[in-house]
Nucleic acid binder design. Sequence first.
DNA 1: TTGTAAGCGTTATCAC
DNA 2: GTGATAACGCTTACAA
Lengths: 339, 339
Amino acid sequence: MQDLQDATPTLATVARLANVSLASASRVLNGIKTNPETLRRVTEAAAAVGYVPNAAARTLRLRRTGQIAFAMPDVANPVYTSMVGSIAQVARECGSRLILHSTDADVADELSFIEDLKQRYVDGLILVSIDFTSAHADAIAGAAVPVALLGNPPEGTKIDTVRANSSHGATEAVKHLHACGRRRIAFVNGPEHTAPGSARRRGYLQGLRECGLDRDDTLVEVGSDFTIDAGREAAERLLERVMPDAVFCANDLIAFGALAALRERRLEVPRDVAIVGMDDTTLARVTSPTLTSVDLGGAERARVAAELLLARIDQPKRRVRTVAVEPKLVVRESCGAVL
Amino acid sequence: MQDLQDATPTLATVARLANVSLASASRVLNGIKTNPETLRRVTEAAAAVGYVPNAAARTLRLRRTGQIAFAMPDVANPVYTSMVGSIAQVARECGSRLILHSTDADVADELSFIEDLKQRYVDGLILVSIDFTSAHADAIAGAAVPVALLGNPPEGTKIDTVRANSSHGATEAVKHLHACGRRRIAFVNGPEHTAPGSARRRGYLQGLRECGLDRDDTLVEVGSDFTIDAGREAAERLLERVMPDAVFCANDLIAFGALAALRERRLEVPRDVAIVGMDDTTLARVTSPTLTSVDLGGAERARVAAELLLARIDQPKRRVRTVAVEPKLVVRESCGAVL
DNA sequence: TTGTAAGCGTTATCAC
DNA sequence: GTGATAACGCTTACAA
């Protein structure tokens, strides 16, 4: 009769129903050895009322949330969503939930998110920061929970890190274009004050050097952003003053913009101008022509970062690790692959 | 001296430092009116030790987590990531965190996730289910926290729901193709046992009817999946037996596959064959030619779902609402727009 | 206005 | 093995 109270059952409900103490009920539910009779009674009682332990209470007691956070610049960018995918998978395998946070690549937001970790609603954070400052290093050093980084902090930063070698990737792209017979290789970059922007420029110049090509700054154009529209505008400016036979673009989105600009000028890709992008996003397989792109290993890097983080959560004292994932050129029609 | 203990400060730390009771400290920190002197002391103490309230303790006490969950079939699908974006934004505006869960469109996984809500680690769930069963209805009815649905449950289901009208959208697509002068309008669908599959087929047939075109089942091909590869294969099968002057594709990914198949046959789009896709993903602006597509309002629907959910969390007794978002045709080069 | 104290639902340390 | 009981960190009657 008084059973009608179907407020969510707590451990107390189960214990009462099984006629044992709270402690015993807890033990059974946590798989601690008990007399078979209590085991049975508790298990049955729990099943009968559909008992599920309360996460907040558990967290409060255990100091473990079973959650990790992923903070990235932009949810809509395919580079990051592929990371979300692989982190979600690792998290799921480890019985963790995933909290998503979009920082809009805003340093202040990133820092305040790190500060928020003091609330301890997660066991750790995976952060991808486009523009790593010393404020980041300080904030992370004092963070309430472990942080794993996807990015390129200064050498010696004491944080678990997974680096991409985008400068090397850019060099490879240039070398590939050169190997395809291109000699006037232009470069459309994104903002150069960002880490990826400066690394890719370095890699581009290095590529020219390795191919024995002269550096020609009229072949370089800088976009306002790493987006399709910015890429298109930058490519248009470039084409107004020079006629390259190849364009290396700092990422796929910029490359799509460049593709559009070339099409508008009735230039055919790759016949007139070859294109290579970077990131190897899903979209690269979809354009016409399909886009040759340098895969920076985003999904892989994210997976590794998640693993580093979970390892550190289990073992806070372990040695700090830095892992580098090497880029891989994926050849498609926009340069190199036969149509 | 004994200050050296820099274990994360709790409310007790602050109270002690400010020389007031726990209760007073709590009041100040929660903005409850107090004597200015205590206000000052507590505020200063809190700042001094960098106090941040513990989320688990707060949740346990308040029965509010400040978290909502979004469970969707596939993190990598651009339709869903655009939803993630708008939900993340709403959540952030309301000071909520977002938990992401990928169900792989697996009914069992969806149901077990709903069951998990009993742990109460979130205040509510936004669920997108491709294939809504009565088991879903039951599970949601008995769920521990409110659920808002993105999908098309049977009429009369007592759940806050945001519907897309994809059948209507399909009809519009066909009518547009007809208005562009096309008369042999083919249809490449995804699996027809799914809700979207059957709705889009209905809409396609309705469109033919409204245009006074005869139904011709040789013009219909069904892919194994809603993906690029499946779309390409299905389109190839279609083109082997008929020569349409237009193809309506059940979603953008299928349309990209169809685009590839047409290109392979040296058919020009839209000159020889016009194409219309569905979902209006980011990718639609990137292909060549750009893709005319029916925007089912994913981002908008997700935003509304988030708002419905948050409203219900605040007000559990409010009337159940169903919102329908109407599709909108976005004309681009693959049919209709001038090059 | 302020302080005391009772919970929120768990887990873990004790005696028994 | 089992059962009281004390935390975990916070909010909120209720009393002063």
